[in-house]
């Protein structure tokens, strides 16, 4: 099933002589059950592209359909609801809230979806236990190692069972072994036939986990061979 279809997608920052075209007519299709890696040098437009796909940034030209829904046809409110129900996020710097416990951090997407705190926290505990974080449930994320924080961020990214997960450099701050473990979770625990995962990365060590790799440079995409 088609998860994402982008056609001639364009995004420009600024206007006039200072305008910078970050994404230039990108065509991209991602299917469910697929783990797509977007690779490319810094400043090539990777993060802008996933921000567009996630509905966080608006685009001027082209089309971007996520599970058949076109962002341009949505109001800001509908876009917010769509993100809440459909998309999970894993951020490069985790963006875990240090004032909340590990369990509470993971429960946030469920609370946003209207689940009551006791139920949301129960489900978060179960998921964290599954991810070998049973003894870290009630401590602040800042007391966790980088790998543990990333597992927590992944748990937060898919606890509400979104159909699309967007990951920005999930292994950037991790050593090889921990990076492998994180990708293993994404590939074998998170990915399923109804879900698509997009990973933006610089890290060539994780290419082997991808079903497909696309290369981005100067705001344009090109298919990259896995070998």
């Amino acid at each position: 099933m088609e998860a994402i279809r982008c056609e001639k997608l364009c995004k420009t920052y600024g206007s006039g002589p200072n305008a910078v075209q970050a994404v230039r007519g990108v065509d991209l299709q991602v299917n469910t059950g697929e783990l797509l890696l977007i690779v490319g040098p810094s400043g090539s437009g990777k993060t802008t592209l996933i921000s567009l796909i996630a509905g966080i940034l608006p685009y001027e030209e082209g089309e971007c359909r996520v599970f058949g829904e076109e962002y341009k046809e949505m109001t800001e409110e509908k876009k917010t609801t769509f993100r809440k129900n459909t998309i999970g996020f894993v951020f490069q710097s985790f963006n875990l809230i240090p004032m909340l416990t590990a369990t509470e951090n993971v429960a946030v997407p469920l609370l946003l979806n209207g689940i009551l705190p006791p139920d949301a926290e129960k489900k978060a505990r179960e998921l964290l236990t599954e991810l070998d974080l049973k003894d870290k449930l009630d401590i602040s994320p800042k007391e966790l190692s980088g790998g543990q924080q990333q597992r927590l961020a992944i748990a937060r990214g898919f606890i509400h069972e979104p159909k699309l997960i967007v990951c920005d450099e999930p292994t950037a701050y991790l050593d090889h072994k921990t990076g492998d473990m994180v990708m293993d979770i994404l590939k074998n625990k998170v990915l399923n036939k109804d879900r698509a995962i997009i990973v933006v990365t610089h890290d060539p060590r994780i290419f082997s986990y991808a079903d497909r790799v696309v290369h981005m440079e100067d705001g344009q995409l090109s298919e990259k061979s896995l070998s």
């Binding site: 917010t80 996020f89 997407p109």
Partner: peptide, 14 residues
């Protein structure tokens, strides 16, 4: 601000 932006990205209405 980053955490509020995270909530916003995850679908928290303004």
């Amino acid at each position: 601000l980053r955490y509020f932006a995270t909530f916003r990205a995850m679908g928290a209405p303004i």
